[in-house]
Amino acid sequence: MLKMNNLCKSFRTELVETHALRNFTFSVDEGDFVSVTGPSGSGKTTFLNIAGLLENHTSGSYLLDGIDVKTLSDKQRSQLRNEKIGFIFQSFNLIPDLNLFDNVDVPLRYRGLSRAERHQRIEESLARVGLANRMKHLPSQLSGGQQQRVAIARALAGKPRFLLADEPTGNLDSQMAKSVMGLLQEINQQGTTIVMVTHDPELAMQTSRNVFVRDGQISEAETIMPLAAASNQ
């Protein structure tokens, strides 16, 4: 599904060159639920940005679903993001001016789906996160947990094979965090590959695989956690 080999990412300013990722080699298989942990500044977000095609890497190779993304144009990358990847952000990133329906509609519009298809998917995915009856509400009228559910619905509506979650529970209290996590696990069990970046080891324990990033490199200490620990939630 996702294969990074010897990947490097460096930022250059006039004075210094910073290496955010160094010889980063990592792969995710279809159906995995991988958590990426590490202290802040370790390169987690850079990894996420590159994995999600939000940024390009400097060297090395990255194959997403067998496609070498390095050679793609901006338009092709956008299309790939739209079709294969679903994003869940720490601060939800809902568009405040749009109601829930229109928010979930955003990626579908860029897909160029028909009106009927879009309607069906929006209703389906909002129903799936339990917010079918709030379609006309604005994000500001919802609680944080509900907002993150909308963000998940938005990610799901595009039927992505690969879900990227960036601290999905970072802005939520523990009760809400738990329910969001449960939702992610459910989605994973239905076949969607998930990579979740988090600094919370407890959350990482609930995924099928955890990698640790430090100083822009994968730490060898990979821990495989039994999936069963969380699945009975």
Binding site: L54, S78, N82, F87, I95, R154
Partner: peptide
């Protein structure tokens, strides 16, 4: 966010 969700330039 729109760009991340697949909007082209």
């Amino acid at each position: 966010t729109r760009r991340a969700l697949g909007a082209s330039k």
